[in-house]
């Protein structure tokens, strides 16, 4: 029973009640993934599992046996940030910084979803093979990540830097 976290194998907890979020924060010392509601309503705990974004607070860790998890710590570091992390700084895509790791992980997953053609609520032609990027597409797809400081504009700006096709 192991799980790979940022490329490192970790033991799964013996108590099946432990969420993936609490495994990361309390047992593995990876507190970059945040707890904002513990009930799937805020997105602060978003991580990537096999490249797909999920809410780690609603995930029982034991369910993810053998899976590969990427957290904010696995994307980049303060010294050597991922381009998206740098873009968040450049565009002031946060204030308090608490929802930020979740926003960034969510955006990583979101970009892949669009590239593979997953439609969204604002996609006008859902039968289209290629979904055109727009700021509204980014907004809708990032709506599962709440930000109370109100950094929404900066977040969308930061994400748009990774999407040349989104430039209006």
């Amino acid at each position: 029973m192991t799980i790979s976290v940022n490329g490192v194998e970790a033991m799964l907890p013996s108590d099946p009640r432990v969420s993936l979020l609490d495994l990361l924060r309390e047992q593995l010392g990876l507190s970059g993934t945040k707890k904002g509601c513990d009930q799937g309503a805020c997105g602060a705990c978003t991580v990537l599992v096999d490249g797909e974004r999920i809410l780690s607070c609603l995930a029982l860790a034991v369910q993810y046996d053998g899976r590969s998890v990427t957290t904010i710590e696995g994307l980049g570091t303060a010294e050597c940030p991922h381009p998206l992390q740098s873009a968040f700084i450049a565009h002031d895509g946060f204030q308090c910084g608490y929802c930020t790791p979740g926003q960034i992980c969510s955006a990583m997953g979101m970009i892949e979803e669009v590239r593979r053609g997953t439609p969204s609520h604002v996609t006008s032609d859902i039968t289209a093979e290629v979904i055109p990027f727009s700021r509204d597409e980014v907004r809708e797809r990032m709506s599962g990540n709440l930000c109370r400081c109100g950094a929404h504009n900066g977040i969308v700006d930061a994400i748009a830097t990774l999407l040349p096709e989104a430039a209006e």
């Binding site: 997105g43 978003t46 439609p119 859902i126």
Partner: peptide, 16 residues
């Protein structure tokens, strides 16, 4: 059906 699903919850929840 596609439209109903993407109108619900958030992308993270729909993935799970």
């Amino acid at each position: 059906l596609s439209r109903a699903i993407v109108a619900g919850a958030s992308a993270q929840i729909r993935n799970m």
